[in-house]
């Protein structure tokens, strides 16, 4: 099976506290630690497990800039056969639809049986996969938390719905699935693995290579634009307990007793 995984490089929220810059209109981007968007990493692992069983290749693509190459290399170190960078000045300022338009161009250049995305990007909204599927007229399923390959170009999948319930379906290939965290246990990538792929060439495709009309992407085509970042005025907010850990523990116990949670 030929599998494409769409992946993004994002500021890692488990490594950074995301804060406003001094002008108060953007997040502070200096010294941010970046990594691959978490669900995208699960998507790559899932693709690798599928090809280990059924054969085929895993390609990882990102719409971004040279800086984003590092996540492609990381995923190649994990075992992906190929990483490609979709990059062009015309793509700058794209909204979700713009990103999906670029990815569609790449899907149509190749012959992929299965396209995986993550459920959601750290600064996204769970939209790119569903848009891409609709543009390609492929069937789509979001929040996928298991995949089984069936005979005859079909998959059996489950979607995560409320309360830990799982909605089971059969879906025909080719299709687009957005992958939820926890679907598998992504393998560890060591420095050695990264070094081994350090000099692998990463092909780059621009708008004309992908047959993407530059006017259909980028800032000018974006229907959805972010004006600024801000921190909303807090509601009441928590009463912050002050003192040494010991003093705070004593106060907290009193409070819990008062609430009837401690006998």
């Amino acid at each position: 099976m030929e599998i494409l995984v769409c992946a993004r490089r994002v500021p890692d929220t488990s490594e950074n506290e995301i804060q406003l810059n001094s002008a108060g209109n953007d997040i502070e981007r200096d010294d941010l630690v970046y990594s691959i968007n978490e669900p995208d990493n699960y998507a790559v692992e899932e693709a690798l497990q599928i090809v280990a069983k059924s054969g085929g290749n895993v390609t990882v693509a990102t719409v971004g800039t040279d800086e984003d190459e590092e996540i492609l290399r990381r995923e190649m170190a994990m075992g992906a056969n190929k990483g490609v960078l979709l990059s062009d000045d015309a793509f700058n300022g794209s909204d979700g639809k713009g990103i999906a338009t670029v990815l569609k161009g790449f899907v149509q250049k190749g012959k992929f049986d299965l396209v995986l995305t993550g459920v959601q990007a750290e600064d996204g909204g769970a939209q790119v996969g569903g848009m891409l599927a609709a543009m390609l007229d492929y069937p789509f399923a979001s929040l996928v938390n298991s995949i089984e390959v069936l005979d005859g170009n079909k998959l059996k999948i489950s979607r995560e719905i409320e309360g830990g319930n799982r909605e089971m379906s059969e879906i025909d290939l080719p299709c687009v699935l957005s992958i939820q965290t926890g679907i598998n246990e992504p393998r560890y990538v060591g420095m050695r693995g990264i070094r081994q792929v350090a000099s692998v060439e990463i092909p780059t495709y621009g708008a004309s290579d992908l047959g993407v009309d530059p006017k259909s992407v980028g800032e000018a085509a974006a229907n959805v634009k972010r004006d600024d970042y801000f921190i909303p005025a807090l509601g009441k907010g928590a009463e912050i307990l002050q003192g040494s850990n010991e003093e705070i523990a004593t106060k907290l116990i009193e409070l819990m007793k008062a609430k009837g949670g401690l006998q």
Partner: peptide, 13 residues
């Protein structure tokens, strides 16, 4: 965005 750490004003055409 970022798990609710920051908010953004967004304009939609």
């Amino acid at each position: 965005e970022f798990g609710g750490q920051v908010s953004t004003h967004v304009r939609c055409n």
